[in-house]
Design a protein around this nucleic acid. Structure first.
Lengths: 208, 208, 208, 208
DNA sequence: GATGAATGAGGGTTCATTCAT
DNA sequence: AATGAATGAACCCTCATTCAT
């Protein structure tokens, strides 16, 4: 017997006036920032100032709400990436640096979205399993495009550039997820330190 | 008055015949692999083929059970590490290679323990707070010892060796966690590829 | 950090239509009549015809429910006493007579409330400790006021009036609790018999 | 479906050597002193130094054990009363005074038995309902015999002697149950105070 | 559209009782 | 006779979900 998916009307939610929509979005992401199970639908509706029924009218279930949020922030962030990518930066280290700056913007404008976004991975499979898979594919696609853009000729000839990119990627992820983000300047310094190492070790020596 | 810790008789559990003990251990770790809250004691006893009462006779509470498991796998793994460390290997890349082999063993012999072990950090935030802290200290100490052993003079002088070690560490973790482990030979090859990059890029050039 | 008291919304309960409110009140007091521990919340909701969740929505916990009931009956009864007291009767035997009539009313209209009310003291020791203390103080105050009203000069000079009042009190309580209450006239006769003894023996002789 | 009464072999228990028997008796009464439900069979066997199985071998169930204890102390105490009664004391006030002294003995020699004995009434219907009824009948019989012995001619002619005895009885009960028994001398003083009132008010004036 | 009172399955925990040894 | 590991029904409580208004 398959779990029946109840009615949901996300489109109606998207047609809401932006202020109300964001109030709900903020409340939900804030509550989900520590993982799926810890979030309480009661807390969400209370914080958003709407009724229980309305939340379920829009999203059908807690699970679908979570799925929606994951997709929403992902699209929102990806959107920013693409704008950046379209500016055609070919140096992958520079791209990661820009990415970090973008995150800074997100933190300032939508702190809860950022927390939530980080939490998705940190509390990964606390969430319904399906979710992770779907998102992973999407992120992989985005990341692939991200990589396709970058200029592999910058890398030393005696190493596997793809593996090198992989190393840079996981290091950046780890840095962003685990780092205490209270002091942003500190964070940028650390980040710069790592990027320097990569430039020194993985890139060809620049001859002047 | 502190939260009263109910009677628990872990020693009695340790005196169980190994087969039964492992059945319980497996069931519990399997159930906890997605985090503390998601795990159901009902599911554990059902899977282990014991009664609810017996589980609580041994461990007192879900929280104490979790604490025990965390410590158990940690000791189990640390044990292997220490044996290796005592062989006094100073090349950190060689140490990571050995570590990977050990983890591979763990995955093969106790897949659930391995999943659980990974989950401890991944789902850290939904576990009883105390646990994470205690373990973090211990692991930090173990890792520090691990690092203290290694010969930093192997690294290039123009990079921050600590950051370099960090990069190597997260890359190894990512590799072990994400890699599809069906084909062991394939895995070892990939692993070797990454270690080669690190040796080539982070270590001093060897002059012959 | 004190034991956290979970949300409770007793006001919402008080706003319920009287029939439903009394159905819950009756079920709860009936179930608690043999003490705190023996009462089962399952039995209460089943008897009241409501769901588990609703009971906890109103009262937060078994303990808070019990606390509410204790206060409720106490206020309910005290209310009646005070009306009587305000009529300013100074003869304590007359006051006990009135009290007995009031209790009789309570028994007829809310038998479970009466049983519960008696049980509070009888099974005091298995209730959450705080409760008993708070109520005891309040009841002591009410009883003190009750006694302060009464004219001690009616008592013989050669006996301790306070002890005499105590004797009258426990006798009345015993009478009301143990007497088979099927035949009200019979009960009143017995009661009158005892009051006569007290008047004859404890009061000064009336000279005409 | 009637609750099935499991096998019990109290006779075997009675045939135990006195030291072991008393160790069990003490442990059980001590644990039951706060009522039936609060007592834990685990605590009893631990305190008595016997196994769970043995306790159930002798008594069959917690309920039967409790029943046995109630009967046991009752018989033990009644036994003392009868010895006293056989000495043929006809003054009921004197009889109550002697009773109080007997209780003092019990307190000294078997403090737990005394606590348990008091608890039976204090925590009355916390226990299985049947118990109270059975005991009540027995106690009533004992009390009736107690009263039958007493010399009614001591009472004033203008009051109902039976009712007067009843008053004395409930006052004594209340005193014994509620009084803080830490200071025995204090208790005896209070007791004497009440007995004096009864003698002064209920008995005929003694002409010299 | 919008509400929030009401639901009940499921969770963690306890403990009297049983039974293989 | 004696043990104590093992059981499982029953307990208090939570919370995602529903539905009458």
């Amino acid at each position: 017997m398959e779990k029946q998916v109840k009615q949901a009307d996300v489109e109606k939610f998207m047609r809401l006036e932006q202020r109300k929509r964001n109030r709900i979005l903020n409340a939900a992401m804030k509550e989900f920032r520590y993982g799926y199970k810890k979030a309480s639908t009661d807390a969400i509706v209370k914080d958003a100032g709407i009724s229980k029924g309305l939340l379920y009218h829009y999203f059908g279930s807690k699970e679908q709400l979570y799925a929606f949020l994951v997709r929403y922030v992902n699209d929102f962030i990806t959107c920013g990436y693409f704008d950046m990518l379209n500016e055609g930066n070919a140096d992958i280290l520079e791209m990661f640096w820009q990415t970090a700056l973008l995150k800074k913007d997100l933190i300032d404008q939508h702190p809860h979205w950022y927390d939530f976004s980080n939490g998705i991975y940190v509390h990964s499979s606390d969430a319904p399993a399906v979710q992770a898979t779907l998102l992973a594919q999407e992120q992989q696609a985005a990341y692939d495009e991200f990589c396709a853009r970058c200029d592999l000729s910058l890398f030393r000839d005696d190493i596997d550039a793809e593996k090198a990119i992989s190393i840079i990627g996981v290091t950046m992820d780890d840095l962003i997820n685990s780092e205490c983000h209270d002091d942003y300047e500190q964070f940028l310094n650390t980040l710069r330190g790592y990027l320097d190492i990569f430039r020194t070790c993985f890139y060809k020596e620049v001859k002047d």
